[in-house]
Design a protein around this nucleic acid. Structure first.
Length: 671
DNA sequence: AGCACGCCGACT
DNA sequence: GTCGGCGTGCTC
């Protein structure tokens, strides 16, 4: 008899799979999609079986697999999804599949490999708790029965245990793929929307999944929904769960023992194979993006999931991001209109310009604040940056000092008149006049929250002023806000803005001079959010002030355009420049070794890509973030989205493993 | 990634 | 003498 060979994808950054032997006693349990325990270079790893191998081509001495996890194999749909993840974020198949791997431990693995049935002897008391065919792990978690107790019940013949039959499963099709986007800004309306969503699940007898951007939001909705959906089978899933609880949720999902899953992005990878309705809240929020390998995002995963397995996806946002607009514009997503339950007053918007900045707040703004305060209202002042002063720049032309290595603004230290890079620590002395236009007025720029707070405190010395910046983020929001609040983008949320009568956005232009090509649209999103949420609980007409340099007034006006106008223009710009979403920009970051070695490694990959006709920029030296003082080199490959597969192939050919010699290569995708 | 092996410098 | 730093090679 010929030994059976299988191909296993392992969670290592190597772009090929590994072959293993299947020992005779595990034959029955191993299928495509099984989770198996294997040895690799003296360590124990969990990997997914992705194929049956024909023969041992390279004639390597093969090791047998050590064991099979007591879970059902992944369906072919999940494996396809993992392939898609690999293509989208340029990771190895094993890394993509590791998203689907549940935590395992000996103690509960044993339980999970049995199934409980009612025994031959009838006992009306016990019969109720031993329904026909439940996984023993699930049964014990639900009933809390001890192992001893179960052993005794089995002995008495009241219960019977059988080995769990691990067989391939299939994916229940969610029907024709449908994706909708709609703007539902207010919490109250969102709650009723989700309630309707659940109602629809109930009447149609279908299963659903709702993905929230972070666990604070999840908790907030869960609190309300859990009481409304009293006797529903809910799975609440996020990273705070212990590994045992996670495994429990995994087995529940696998058994189809749920109606609705509420969770953060981790819940996307539960083996919930019967879901036909999906809902995602605010897909552009940071929490939907993973910062580990693979750097996926919830919306992309859901899109692919629906594309592969069918179902209906509801995207709920307030102001769409450019990416969301692009989906609607290219008709991948349909736009639905939602009508708020009540009419709310929209703020009156004023653009306040100034020529040369002498103070943080212009006179009209100061007057507006005083007026608001005298009417018993509340004023918010929004500042872009944390800290005190962040840069040194020219008052006339907008030039500012940037570190040549890191391309970030030099921090200006007023006491010793020096420029210091916040990343690499490079020190430079500023010139006497502006090196760009020769202007005489170089000044400390982009005032941070602390500095603004300090000046505002001086002007309104008799009022209590709250400062809200990132350090205070972990704390709960205050129950009652003081009359003046100075803060960063932390302010720009419904719960805060609804309680204000005036919002001032100071130095709006500091966003517009950033090198980041997304800065403008980020600012747009912030301004639009402010317009939506400001003063919805206010008795008077709320007011929004944009304080900006005179020559940038036109830019400020553009920020007030409706999103379909603003984004259309932005997309046209992106298309003509060959930026995402029309191209994929793949950043290769080389770290470690010495410069020469990094350059050699990157150049080699670069040459390969140039040969395929893709645009390559670099390698350029840049600063290391991980170790202080360690440097790195970066290279960007730009190619059309259609060629993702080919790029992945080229990459895995040149770079099997993301470490070559002493050089580490990190990948970042912008698409 | 992460493990072993190997080659050098500074310690009880 | 050997402990442990890191550079290099390799993993079914």
């Amino acid at each position: 008899m010929v030994d059976r060979l299988i191909s296993v994808a392992l969670p290592v950054p190597l772009y090929h799979n590994f072959s293993y032997l299947v020992p005779p006693f595990l034959q029955e349990e191993v299928h495509r999609g099984s989770l198996v325990k294997v040895e690799l270079k003296n360590r124990s790893l969990l990997g997914w079986v992705v194929a049956e191998d024909e023969k041992n081509e390279k004639n390597i001495p093969l090791k047998p697999i050590v064991g099979v996890a007591p879970i059902f194999p992944l369906s072919s749909l999940e494996i396809s999804l993992a392939h898609r993840i690999q293509e989208l974020w340029f990771c190895s198949l094993g890394e993509a599949l590791s998203l689907f791997t549940p935590p395992l431990a000996k103690r509960w693995e044993e339980d999970a490999s049995f199934r409980v049935y009612p025994g031959a002897r009838r006992d009306p008391d016990i019969e109720e708790i031993a329904p026909a065919g439940v996984n023993l792990f699930l049964f014990r978690e639900k009933t809390g029965l001890s192992r001893d107790k179960i052993r005794r019940l089995v002995k008495k013949g009241i219960m019977a245990l059988e080995r769990e039959k691990i067989e391939p499963v299939s994916w229940f099709s969610g029907g024709e793929p449908q994706v909708y986007w709609q703007s539902i800004p207010f919490f109250k309306d969102r709650v009723s929307f989700i309630t309707n969503f659940c109602q629809r699940l109930k009447t149609e007898g279908k299963k659903g999944m709702v993905i929230f951007p972070d666990f604070a939001t999840l908790d907030r909705y869960y609190k309300i929904l859990a009481t409304q959906l009293d006797c529903w089978h809910l799975i609440k899933y996020d990273s705070r769960l212990s590994s045992k609880k996670r495994f429990f949720a995994y087995k529940l999902a696998e058994a189809g023992d749920y109606q609705l899953i509420l969770g953060t992005r981790l819940a996307l990878f539960l083996p919930a194979r019967e879901v036909s309705y999906y809902l995602i809240l605010d897909p552009a929020d940071r929490g939907h993006f993973s910062d580990q390998v693979p750097g996926y995002d919830s919306l992309r995963i859901l899109e692919e999931r629906v594309k592969l397995g069918g179902g209906r996806l509801e995207i709920v946002g307030s102001v769409p991001s450019l990416e969301e607009f692009y989906l609607m514009d290219s008709r991948k997503v349909s736009h639905k209109d939602f009508f708020p339950s009540q009419e709310v007053a929209r703020p009156e918007v004023k653009i306040v310009t100034y020529r040369a900045k002498k103070r943080v707040l212009t006179l009209p703004v100061q007057q507006a604040i005083s007026q608001t305060l005298s009417q018993g209202g509340r004023a918010f002042i929004w500042v872009q940056k944390t800290g005190y002063s962040s840069a040194l720049g020219c008052r006339d032309c907008g030039f500012y000092y940037v570190c040549p290595r890191c391309e970030v603004a030099f921090r200006y230290h007023i006491e010793d008149h020096r420029l210091i890079c916040p990343w690499c620590g490079l020190v430079q002395l500023p010139d006497a006049v502006c090196p760009q236009c020769g202007g005489a007025w170089l000044e400390a720029w982009g005032e941070g929250v602390e500095r603004v707070w300090e000046t505002v405190s001086k002007i309104f010395s008799r009022v209590s002023i709250l400062r809200m910046d990132r350090e205070e983020r972990k704390r709960e929001l205050p129950l009652v806000f003081p009359s003046i609040v100075v803060g960063t983008s932390l302010l720009l949320q419904e719960e805060v803005l609804s309680k204000g009568d005036l919002l001032v956005m100071v130095s709006v232009e500091s966003w517009l001079s950033l090198t980041d090509f997304r800065a403008r649209e980020k600012l747009y999103g912030q301004v639009q959010k402010a317009r939506l949420f400001l003063g919805t609980e206010s008795k008077t007409t709320p007011r929004l002030f944009l304080q900006i340099k005179e020559e940038k007034e036109k830019e400020a006006e553009r920020l007030l355009a409706p999103w379909w106008v603003f984004y259309r223009e932005e997309l046209e710009k992106r298309e003509s420049l060959g930026y995402p979403p029309y191209s994929v920009m793949l950043y290769l970051i080389g770290e470690g070794g010495n410069r020469k070695k990094r350059q050699v490694v990157l150049t080699k990959i670069g040459e390969e890509c140039k040969g395929e006709g893709w645009k390559v920029m670099g390698p350029f030296p840049s600063a290391g973030l991980r170790k202080r003082g360690s440097l790195r080199d970066e290279m960007v490959i730009i190619f059309p989205p259609r060629e993702r597969k080919k790029v992945l192939e080229t990459l895995s050919r040149t770079l099997d493993g993301r470490k070559i010699g002493n050089v580490q290569v990190f990948l970042k995708v912008d698409q």
